[in-house]
């Protein structure tokens, strides 16, 4: 598990090869990667459906999920599907409006890396994970 704190809650762009959203054309960011089709890092907007980008999951090592607002539940289901349905085993990193109180649920959906919003306390965020001794549902492991 990885906890990343940045100034604005958003990761550095150059890490990402490709941005995928539900409506726009996939948007390539990395020139070097453009020549080969192998994509190793993908940024997924919450309206994207995994079926559309599943062909990249074979080479992908890092998937960034965008949480535009802490009340948006879509990245939770995206992560769960990536793990359960597509058997993706690499890093899933969530960024955006990521707050301490959300960390446990995000983690339980199979997200294993977090870009914490800048005003959040890292220690209390980590304290959320495993706060409950037992759950009523199985966790989706990373």
């Amino acid at each position: 598990m990885k906890l990343i704190t940045t100034v604005n809650g958003y990761p550095e762009q150059q890490e990402i090869d490709l941005i995928w959203s539900g409506y726009d054309e996939p948007h390539r960011l990395n020139d070097a990667e453009q020549r080969s089709s192998a994509v190793s890092s993908l940024q997924i907007e919450p309206d994207a459906l995994p079926d559309a980008f599943q062909h990249h999951l074979i080479t992908a090592r890092l998937i960034l999920l965008h949480l535009p607002a802490f009340t948006d539940g879509r990245p939770y289901s995206l992560a769960a599907m990536l793990r359960q349905h597509y058997r993706y085993e690499g890093e899933i990193r969530v960024y955006g409006d990521v707050r301490a109180a959300q960390l446990d649920h995000l983690h339980r959906c199979g997200i294993n890396s977090f870009v914490l919003k800048e005003d959040q306390d890292a220690a209390s965020a980590l304290g959320q994970i495993g706060y409950f001794s037992k759950w009523y549902q199985p966790n989706i492991s990373a």
Binding site: G73, Y76, A80, H105, W135, Y136, Q137, N139
Partner: peptide, 14 residues
Amino acid sequence: RQWSTLHPEFNWLP
């Protein structure tokens, strides 16, 4: 009831 209680995936539905 048990399944839906603090379900990690479905706490932030539309």
